[in-house]
Design a protein around this nucleic acid. Sequence first.
DNA 1: CTCCTATGTAGACAGCGATCACATCCTCTG
DNA 2: CAGAGGATGTGATCGCTGTCTACATAGGAG
Lengths: 200, 200
Amino acid sequence: MPSGPTRYHHGDLAAACVRAALELLEEGATASGFSMRAVARRAGVAPAAPYRHYADREALMTAVATVGYAELAEHLAQANPAPATAEDLADVAVAYVDFAVRRSVLFSVMFGEPCDHDSPERVAATEAVSAYVADIVSRCFPDSDSEALATAIWALVHGLAFLHLDGKLDASSPTAISATVRAAVHAVLDLANSPAALRG
Amino acid sequence: MPSGPTRYHHGDLAAACVRAALELLEEGATASGFSMRAVARRAGVAPAAPYRHYADREALMTAVATVGYAELAEHLAQANPAPATAEDLADVAVAYVDFAVRRSVLFSVMFGEPCDHDSPERVAATEAVSAYVADIVSRCFPDSDSEALATAIWALVHGLAFLHLDGKLDASSPTAISATVRAAVHAVLDLANSPAALRG
DNA sequence: CTCCTATGTAGACAGCGATCACATCCTCTG
DNA sequence: CAGAGGATGTGATCGCTGTCTACATAGGAG
């Protein structure tokens, strides 16, 4: 398939577009800066060609985001394949924020950009992340209101990622990130060990 | 000043641009969709005029975001002027998410968009929000590691806002939002009342 | 072999951010 | 009170973008 120097038909342009988009994102294009035309150029194809596979820019972004969800899941699993303790949970949280910071543009495509909320792959991918977090939480806190706590933990971690991305928290080094995230996660979990601290 | 039908010099175009931008955002423009030129049209001015006051689109967005921070602070204060209990904190959290959902485009301009991280007003505005949250947390949890816990709570609330914005959590009605946010906040705070739930 | 459909091309359009030379007005100095 | 000069708005222009249309080509089904 990579034989002929230039073929009229690309072979698998749909996938090539997603790959090209990911490359451009890694190379420092802004989320709003990466363009349909740049993707076409990178894929070695006419500007209008990607429109045969993606209705518009948003559709392509949704496809890119879907890949991003898979890579995020992989990154988290790699940090700790079977988290079951508070410390494990902190590991996963650090990995989550680390992913957000190191692949910040991809991350903001996944979460910060308007997107096709009805795309089945996208919904499935986000539900997978949701279920993954819920699973961890239910293992760490088997007796609690799992659903609400899972939502809270996901929000906590997600929020930490955004605050780092936005410069509100120091994201200049992995060490700083790790320290901040661990401190925040433990501050919350340690509430379970110092009930007297709660007023009202 | 609003006398003459058309004046060559506007009077206060800088402020008018911010006002026009806010109007456009309220009218449903996308964050990436609202344009410098649209702002100029709305202000009744030539396309290049705003550039006398804002170096580029990002500079104007930063100014808009700064106004947004002030309005967010006002919205939170209105929800509960002097929060000191966990329940008060939940009120503020609901107000935060409510603001994010009801003024979603402004919110994503404030947080979701690349921005001038060095703008003094912007830094001051975000630090004000940060200090506000830290203040609440230190009142609710006087004995805890205030800084880490404040970061965690801010992240929790911020994350809840984003998950609602992104359709990951049901944002279809204020009631649903309130229920989800309160459940999440209480799930975390109730850890202080059920230490046995923590494993590991 | 032929036709149909999927896919890629060429060219066009309007809208965008940004910059330029120029026009106009306000204010400050003499 | 005049007029110089800086601040502010105008209009034209550039290259880029998303998206549409008409056309070209390829590859598979009959």
